[in-house]
Amino acid sequence: MTFINYAAREINCKIVYYGPGLCGKTTNLQWIYDKTNPQAKGKLISLATETDRTLFFDFLPLDLGQVRGFKTRFHLYTVPGQVFYDASRKLILKGVDGVIFVADSQEARMEANVEARYNLEKNLKDQGYDLAAVPYALQLNKRDLPTAIAADEMYRQLNFKGEPTFEAVAMSGTGVFDTLKSVAKLVLQELKKK
């Protein structure tokens, strides 16, 4: 749910990177953070548990254009991908304006991708959202790996509603901003409708 700060004339939007464990959600965020103008971003916060896993969220405000004279500030979050942390994932989806699903292209992780996609749908529903109506993009990450399966095959298994889909190598930044921009655009379109 978009939060409007009238005093600062800012519209705050929340975009969540979703996907199975180690699919590259944090790498996406890290890349965006590193390549963003220091004046335009806040602190990158990573909360981890004693198990050394990226567990809670990375937080990154970004300025990306204006809507009716209001600046838009995007807050980017990741969720913990391991199947264990379902409660945290559900919590982080609260108030979401857009979702980027990062899929791992490795054959061995296809089942985890499919599960995470269904889990996203379910957790959104539990929070009162419908994935069909939420601005959404699919990123096929780790395309450089030799064990990557065909993009067409991944799309066939993971595509939900004909969403914008991007091939990416988040480690080198390929496809990272394209994916973010596509969802940011969809979020802004939704805002302008309201």
Binding site: G21, L22, Q82, F84, R109, A112
Partner: peptide, 14 residues
């Protein structure tokens, strides 16, 4: 069975 595979898959990748 699927849940067991997913848990194991996470353990392996980490």
């Amino acid at each position: 069975r699927r849940l067991a595979r997913l848990i194991l898959s996470d353990i392996i990748i980490y």
